[in-house]
Simulated scan of single mutants.
Amino acid sequence: MSHIPRKNHFPDIDPVSLEHSTHTATHLKQLIGQQGSIPFQVWMHEALYAPGLGYYASGNTKLGNYQNQAITQGLPGDFTTAPELSPWFARTLSRQIKQVLQASGTTAILEFGAGTGKLAYDILSTLNNSDVKYFILELSADLKSRQQEKLAGFNGQVQWLDALPKHFEGCVIANEVLDAMPVNLFEWQEEGSLAEKHVSLNEAGEFTWLKQPANAAMVEKITTRMPVFPAYASEVNLQAEAWIHEMGNWLKKGVAILIDYGFPQKEYYHPQRSQGTLMCHLRHHTHDNPLIYPGIQDITAHVDFTAMADAALDSGLEVLGYTSQANFLLNCGLMDLLAALDPQDVARYAKEISPVQKLVSEAEMGELFKVLAIGFDIGEDLLGFTRADRRHTL
């Protein structure tokens, strides 16, 4: 999602959204009341995915579209993503997908968390191949409904899944999926022990942090990834690692392309990144307090791509490429595609190019977002990683 600088104030929240957040908070308080405290991973899962209450499981407008609304008008939703910014993202990504399908002799695409359906729409329009079958696994009923409306013209090609497939061959797409998976929060104590952060209630009935001793499994996992930095807080995404492990069971042929913001492990647990990467998105404002506005704000964490690559290798998959989003798009021929635009048509050219610059600029999404390809060798180098492949940094 596109990051906008933090504000010291929060936007006005409408009464309906505030009421929804109150209902979600009541649900979370009941969980805490039953157990005394809950690990942050549980909090994040419930705040995002509790049926009818969680951010992704209710009818919030989550995604803003820069293409259809001027920024000065105030964007709807809480964040925007690369497919919403510009159709050139999907058109360029389609070149990589086409190579994977042709080289692996497959005709299926599986997208996780398809948002508004914009990415799927633009990919199918670009490929223009009725033999391609497009599968979507979407947890949000609201977004699934929007996807079905958006993709109605491809009705014979698109199918929604309710669970992971037992067997899949083709190209898997996960754009900004890993960052929304619930994370465990930990903190190194001054004496060198590891604590896991839980959420509890204070005497006033407000959500508050509670530190509990981390279990042996978490201590072992964290100590193999970073040295002890007293008073250092960060996160570990065990659910994302498990998700990739599981992919090793059901992906039988083809390639998965994972696009998200994050770092290799040495950068992720850098001494200067002492407060972790947890971030919340509320009406296009970013802040770092996940304990407020439950159910109506997004909660995310950057991705430890080394951990994702290790999980892939452990599950029998190969790591086929890793680079920045900018390098990936340029390798896939973004500039060749843009050459079709007429620079003499100044108004249209500016409208098309401005969002593309956000996709590739080092100061915007181009460097912060990375692309990791895992799966099976297709017999030729993947197009998106022909130059500046950074697997050696993982």
Rank of each mutant, 00 (worst) to 15 (best):
L317Q: 14
Y322L: 15
E367F: 15
S361W: 09
R348G: 09
Y349A: 09
V371H: 08
S324H: 10
F369L: 13
S354G: 02
F385G: 07
D336S: 03
V371K: 07
R391K: 14
R391P: 00
P343R: 04
V319Y: 00
G333V: 00
Y349K: 08
V356L: 06
I378K: 05
L334H: 01
E318W: 02
L372S: 08
V319W: 02
K358H: 13
L334A: 01
S361A: 09
F328D: 04
L372G: 12
D381A: 15
F328S: 06
A326W: 07
D389K: 08
K351G: 02
G375F: 05
N331E: 06
R348M: 11
D377K: 00
L330Q: 04
T386Y: 00
A388Q: 14
F328A: 06
D336R: 02
E364C: 09
D377E: 06
L329W: 04
R348L: 13
I374Q: 05
A350Q: 14
S324N: 14
T386P: 00
K358I: 01
Q357P: 01
A340R: 15
M335T: 07
L334D: 00
L338V: 11
A326P: 05
L382Q: 02
D381F: 02
F369R: 08
L368H: 12
F385K: 02
A363I: 13
Q344C: 07
L329T: 03
L383D: 00
P355Q: 00
G366H: 09
C332T: 03
I353W: 06
D336G: 01
M365K: 07
N331H: 04
P343L: 04
R348Q: 15
F376W: 12
D389I: 10
A347K: 14
P343S: 11
E362W: 13
D345P: 06
D345V: 06
P355Y: 00
A347G: 10
A340Q: 07
M335V: 05
L320W: 08
T386K: 14
L359C: 12
D345A: 14
D381V: 01
A388H: 15
D345Q: 15
L329I: 12
E318K: 14
F369I: 10
G384Y: 09
Y349P: 05
I374R: 05
S361K: 11
V360Y: 04
L368Y: 03
A363D: 14
Y349T: 04
R391V: 07
S324F: 10
D389F: 04
S324M: 09
F385D: 05
F376N: 10
L317N: 15
A340W: 01
G333D: 04
I353L: 14
L317H: 11
D377N: 12
S324D: 13
L383G: 00
F376M: 07
A339H: 03
F376T: 13
G375W: 00
G379N: 02
T323Y: 08
K370C: 03
D342H: 10
Y322I: 11
F369H: 12
Y349V: 08
C332N: 13
M335F: 01
Y349D: 04
L341Q: 12
Y322D: 14
A339V: 00
F328C: 11
E352Y: 06
G379T: 02
S361Y: 09
